[in-house]
Design a protein around this nucleic acid. Structure first.
Lengths: 162, 162
DNA sequence: GAAATTACGTCAATAGTACTGACATAATCT
DNA sequence: AGATTATGTCAGTACTATTGACGTAATTTC
């Protein structure tokens, strides 16, 4: 099956194309705000895990503190994200989205979600867990803890990790 | 189902994590060559579609001529890719991988292919076409022509588009 | 209480990948 | 001959990322 040398070029290439177009939707919206893909990622995770600390965010994004700094500062200056002093440890800054930030995060996620639903429909996949299981299995095992698939619960605050 | 506001945050996030780790394998190898992800993409498509022209490559990668220039020049200078004058139209430069280029492309694809096969196995998906169909459906319809899933045929030259 | 560590912020310098705009050359088409 | 096309290249800029160094405040350790 697949290609020469037993390499799965087909899926490798499909992942490239799928991700290229998957990110193209929010990229266009972000341009209006003068934001880039980095802002999107930060905003997404601050929305998904409200109250996470700077260190946790760095760990999820796998970038350095200096790289995050500019992007986070812009999001704070434009009133999309706020920092609150950590309750237990006052050195920590807990990050929360503002209403404005939640609205933007939602606007960015909407076209992506539509694309996913359309793709599930077009491909005739009725069991969405199939795709979820495959994608999760693509993630490095040590890092699966970062995933917060908790579709059901998880209304903020306590998200087990760490 | 899924999350608040009917947005499929779960799969959105899984795509981010899956792609992040999917690209991490070749990134480490590329670092040894002083290459980046851009070199990988060029090398990949030159290998997959030997003889494609510069214009076709730009179309697939969705980048500008100027952006491609530096990367392509480096690959040519390091003897990974060669340019041959187009037979029909001598203005065109057909791009071909050298043996060295093919070897590198293969080395980069190997860990990615292993990850994919492992993920298919771990997730208990026996029908690989399920994943292929989903990913293909994620691509913009107008751009699906770029996909060359033809695992069987397609030995170069004529690839329909344009 | 003093010292070490931790969490975060920031300054400076650099790199990789991308962009727009402009211009040059050679080949092909009209 | 003139227009168009395919490619290459120069200049300038932007965004995202990097490493290294230093500062500050809070917490932990001794």
């Amino acid at each position: 099956m697949s290609d020469e040398d037993g390499i799965d070029f087909a899926i490798i290439e499909l992942l490239f194309f799928a991700y290229r177009d998957f990110t193209s939707d929010p990229d266009q919206i972000l341009a209006d705000y003068g934001f880039g893909r980095a802002h999107h990622r930060v905003l997404h995770f601050v929305n998904r895990r409200p109250g996470l600390t700077v260190a946790e965010l760095l760990d999820v994004l796998k970038i350095t503190k200096q790289s995050l700094a500019r992007v986070l500062k812009q999001l704070i200056d434009t009133d999309h994200v706020v920092q609150l002093q950590g309750p237990r440890d006052r050195r920590q800054r807990e990050l929360y989205p503002t209403a404005k930030g939640r609205a933007l995060a939602l606007a960015l996620a909407r076209p992506q979600s539509r694309r996913i639903h359309a793709a599930l429909g077009d491909s005739g996949i009725t069991e969405r867990t199939l795709v979820e299981r495959f994608l999760e299995a693509m993630v490095n095992p040590e890092l699966r803890a970062q995933i917060d698939v908790g579709s059901a619960e998880m209304s903020g605050k306590s998200h087990g990790e760490h």
